[in-house]
Design a protein around this nucleic acid. Sequence first.
DNA 1: TTTACTGATTACAAATTGGTAACAATTACC
DNA 2: GGTAATTGTTACCAATTTGTAATCAGTAAA
Lengths: 220, 220
Amino acid sequence: MLVDDEADILEIVGYNLSSEGYQVTTAKNGVEAIEKAKKHKPHLIILDVMMPEMDGIEACEKLREIPDLSNTVITFLTARGEDYSQVAGFDAGADDYITKPIKPKVLVSKVKALLRRLKESENPSDTIIKIGELIINREEYKITNKGEEIILPRKEFELLSLLATKPGKVFKREEILDKVWGNEVVVGGRTIDVHIRKLREKIGDKSFKTVKGVGYKFVD
Amino acid sequence: MLVDDEADILEIVGYNLSSEGYQVTTAKNGVEAIEKAKKHKPHLIILDVMMPEMDGIEACEKLREIPDLSNTVITFLTARGEDYSQVAGFDAGADDYITKPIKPKVLVSKVKALLRRLKESENPSDTIIKIGELIINREEYKITNKGEEIILPRKEFELLSLLATKPGKVFKREEILDKVWGNEVVVGGRTIDVHIRKLREKIGDKSFKTVKGVGYKFVD
DNA sequence: TTTACTGATTACAAATTGGTAACAATTACC
DNA sequence: GGTAATTGTTACCAATTTGTAATCAGTAAA
């Protein structure tokens, strides 16, 4: 959604974005913008700072209060050099700004980048494993169990990660050594057991099942 | 890449651009242009509107459908006065047009301008990162923390920038070295730690979390 | 030239982790 | 029930990893 009081800008920018395949809505002022935003729930709002009646900053603040738009990216259009408006803009909840004069190529690639960013934040990739009340975030090396955050040392984290990739599957000791320690490292016979014990202490005894003569498995 | 059915034009324009240091490919018609464009992925395509078989407009539309060429600038060559072709050209996805007769000086400066624009748009809006009260402006190498402006040395700035691109994500030491120092540079084992320490001093201790055996992460 | 700063290194301190040994407990199997 | 094999547990220690301060070379600014 484009918001600007100048019809020229709406047309030029709108044309460029449409021809990239984006669906474009326009609004001529802040009031209209809020109205239309509620209806259309745009993914991205490009907002001119300088507008009559309600300026961009104020419009932005109002837009940010609309719950449906919490995932909407808002970016300002601002004349080059007005840095004060940048700061004020960020305070108002903007995510980025674009400087005038507008270069179509720059604009389009900026819009692409912003929407890509939005998309990325929507699906939290496969780095996250979720089993019952246990959430393993590989990217952040963080574990949440029943809403409580737990920080595990590396080996314990990796051991848990491994077992959790396939709940119910029995991992042979050999396999665990391979994947967690690396098959060139030689460790004593009780090492795995000790680490399992630590995990049992921290995550819960019932989650780890021993299969005698074979290995361990993680159960929900 | 130049596309025109007249060999004279290819030669003259090609000569002028080559002598400015550009790498020039040529094609005699639309079909050849598409073929060669797929192979060479040119940064800029100059396309004559009037060509036998497939005209410039049609060629442009086909070129725009090639994913690899989404960042390619396409400009038309058109006889002065044919405005209709300008409109049609923009609809077909062109970025600019050049009128015949061609004045070499004008042409070269236009090409320069177009390629400069491309370059600017290639590294788009990662320019500003905002996390809580911290605003990082990569374009201006400026950081604002709680409204206060902070100036960081280059390495510290880049380290912070990197970590801030994905708050919460743990960046492995290896990855940090790669992205901030460049993977050909070899630095001592304590270098990253020392820089982290300086950032902790300037930005706040709590913002940087150590993950032993792995790396560091930035947290809000 | 002087000064100030950046960026890296070093050496040592501090903290944490990972592993082991010794022994206890449990299980499987005869 | 007895025995051997396997796993659980604990305390302890060594190795690894990180934090920190001091220092130094290189470079840009004054």
